[in-house]
Amino acid sequence: MNPLAPYACDPARSRGRRYPEPVAPTRTDYQRDRDRIVHSTAFRRLVYKTQVFLNHEGDMFRTRLTHSLEVAQLGRSIARSLGLNEDLVETIALAHDLGHTPFGHAGQDALNACMEGHGGFEHNLQSLRVVDHLEERYPAFDGLNLTFETREGILKHCSRANAELLQAREPGGVGQRFLLGQRPSLEAQLCNLADEIAYNAHDIDDGVRSGLLTLEQLQEVPLFERYRAQALVDHPALARAPRRLLYEAIRRMLSDQVYDVIDATRQALAQANPQQVDDVRAAPALVCFSAAMREQSLGLKRFLFRNLYRHPQVMATTARAQQVVRELFAAYLAQPAQMKPAFAARAQASDGDSARARVVADFIAGMTDRYAASEHARITGQQLLV
Rank of each mutant, 00 (worst) to 15 (best):
N192V: 04
E170W: 07
L215G: 14
C191S: 00
S185G: 13
N162K: 10
L165D: 04
A194F: 00
D206Q: 10
V174T: 14
D195Q: 13
F178Q: 03
G207D: 04
L166M: 13
E152W: 01
A194T: 03
S185E: 14
Q217I: 04
E152P: 01
G153Y: 05
N192D: 12
R169Q: 14
L180V: 08
E164K: 12
H157Y: 03
Y199Q: 15
E152V: 02
L165T: 09
K156N: 09
V208N: 12
A161M: 10
E220L: 10
Q176H: 11
G153K: 03
A188N: 09
A194Q: 05
G207S: 00
Q189H: 06
T214F: 08
S210P: 08
D195V: 04
V221F: 09
L190N: 11
A163F: 08
D205V: 10
C158E: 03
K156E: 07
R169C: 04
L165P: 09
I197G: 13
D206E: 02
E216S: 11
D205W: 10
L155K: 13
S185H: 09
E164W: 06
T214S: 15
I204Q: 08
D206H: 01
R169N: 11
A161V: 07
E220F: 00
Y199S: 04
F178Y: 14
H202V: 09
D195K: 12
G173R: 13
A168Q: 15
Q189V: 09
G181K: 04
P184E: 07
R177P: 11
R183Y: 03
L166T: 08
Y199C: 05
I154G: 15
N162Y: 05
G175C: 13
Y199G: 07
F178C: 02
V208I: 14
L193D: 00
L186C: 13
A188V: 06
D203W: 03
L165A: 15
I197Q: 15
A194R: 00
G181E: 03
G181L: 01
D195P: 06
E220D: 12
A188P: 14
L215A: 13
V174S: 15
E220G: 11
L166K: 02
A161Q: 13
D205M: 08
R169F: 02
L186T: 00
A188D: 08
A163I: 10
C191M: 03
A168S: 14
I197A: 15
Q176M: 05
V221S: 04
E220I: 05
T214L: 09
R209W: 00
Q217L: 12
E220W: 00
L186H: 01
G181V: 03
I197K: 13
L165G: 10
I154P: 10
R160F: 03
Q167E: 15
N162H: 12
